[in-house]
């Protein structure tokens, strides 16, 4: 018998002005599972996490976390969960140690136990030497690690991480990945993670739900999701849009499915390695040779592209550069 850490049925969250952030999603997360919510910015990931962590009430639908209803018993839920929101929640005028001790005391630890727990966590996140410095002086990566450790003070059964590595450099991102992996594998902590990075979901999660515009569009393990795409993915880019259009006509008989975006043609084919030379020859003959080509097994981006008609990573990149997408 396996217990359900999180059960969500038909969750709808509407904000003032009829903004439908989450439009009827259902999913379950088992005890000890590593579950990821993958989707672009504005897909409804943060709203969902805020409902699950008792910061927002659902508009309709039912949400149970660790066996407690979010509407009826938020305090019991707060004792069972640890939450790292997208923005780190840290008072810069305190030291790392003070923040950890305070957090432990707020969860009912005695003064003595709070002190010990703070030291344990400082050691765990390799901040023991900086524990008595003001957090305002910490680097971005140190803050993230402290923020994560603050969620762990009361040894939560379920950990919610809202885009825990957004804006981090690869070194700090890997450090965070290692920590959450350890928590999941060695301590059996259930993890609910949201991310807009394919690699993050792919590397870490047992199971992934892809969310877009407030709806879950696909769910399964990374392998299962990739299988839905088909066999191989061939990406061809062309000088001009019309060339891509023409190439699509030329190659249509060989592909199961395709996507066309900005002079780039993505083909889903069985046995791509076998077909590719023939395809290139044919395109050459038609006078529309591709300027670049790539053959690869499907990625989660291909899954996203197939179910939504858009790329996920491009959106993520656009967001990082601070450019507003149309």
């Amino acid at each position: 018998m396996s217990n359900q850490a999180i059960v969500v049925e038909d969750l709808v969250k509407t904000f003032k002005g009829d903004v439908k952030a989450v439009q009827g999603i259902s999913f379950e997360v088992e005890d000890g599972e590593f579950f990821a919510f993958l989707g672009p910015n504005g897909a409804g990931k943060s709203t969902t996490i805020q409902v699950l962590t008792t910061l927002l009430n659902p508009t309709s639908g039912s949400v149970t976390v660790s066996g407690f209803d979010v509407g009826k018993d938020p305090i019991s839920i707060r004792r069972e969960i640890g939450v790292a929101l997208q923005e780190t929640g840290i008072d810069p005028s305190l030291t790392g140690r003070e923040l950890l001790e305070m957090q432990a005391r707020l969860f009912g630890f005695s003064k003595h136990d709070a002190k010990n727990r703070a030291q344990e966590l400082l050691d765990l996140i390799h901040l023991a030497e900086d524990g008595d410095r003001k957090v305002g002086k910490y680097s971005g990566g140190m803050r993230r690690r402290l923020d994560l450790s603050l969620c762990l003070v009361h040894r939560p059964k379920i950990l919610f991480l809202d885009e825990p590595t957004t804006g981090l450099d690869p070194y700090n991102r890997n450090a965070i990945w290692d920590e959450i992996r350890t928590l999941n594998r060695e301590f059996g902590t259930t993890i609910f993670l949201t991310t807009q990075y394919l690699e993050e979901a792919d590397q870490l999660a047992d199971r992934i739900s892809i969310i877009n515009k407030g709806k879950i569009v696909a769910s399964g393990s990374s392998q299962q999701l990739k299988k839905t795409v088909g066999m191989d993915v061939i990406d061809l880019s062309f000088q001009q849009n019309e060339d891509a259009e023409k190439a699509k006509e030329v190659l249509s008989s060989w592909t199961k499915d395709y996507r066309l975006t900005n002079g780039e043609l993505t083909l889903y084919v069985d046995n791509g390695a076998y077909l590719l030379p023939d395809m290139v020859r044919k395109l050459d003959k038609e006078g529309i040779p591709p300027i670049s080509l790539n053959l690869a097994p499907p990625t989660l981006d291909d899954v996203f592209l197939q179910v939504t008609g858009e790329h996920l990573e491009e959106k993520a990149v656009i967001k990082q550069e601070g450019v507003v997408s149309p």
Binding site: L55, R78, R79, E87, G89, I90, L106, L150
Partner: peptide, 11 residues
């Protein structure tokens, strides 16, 4: 600085 939310997430 987000500390208010962190406090709301405690009992």
């Amino acid at each position: 600085n987000g500390y208010f939310s962190r406090l709301l997430l405690t009992p």
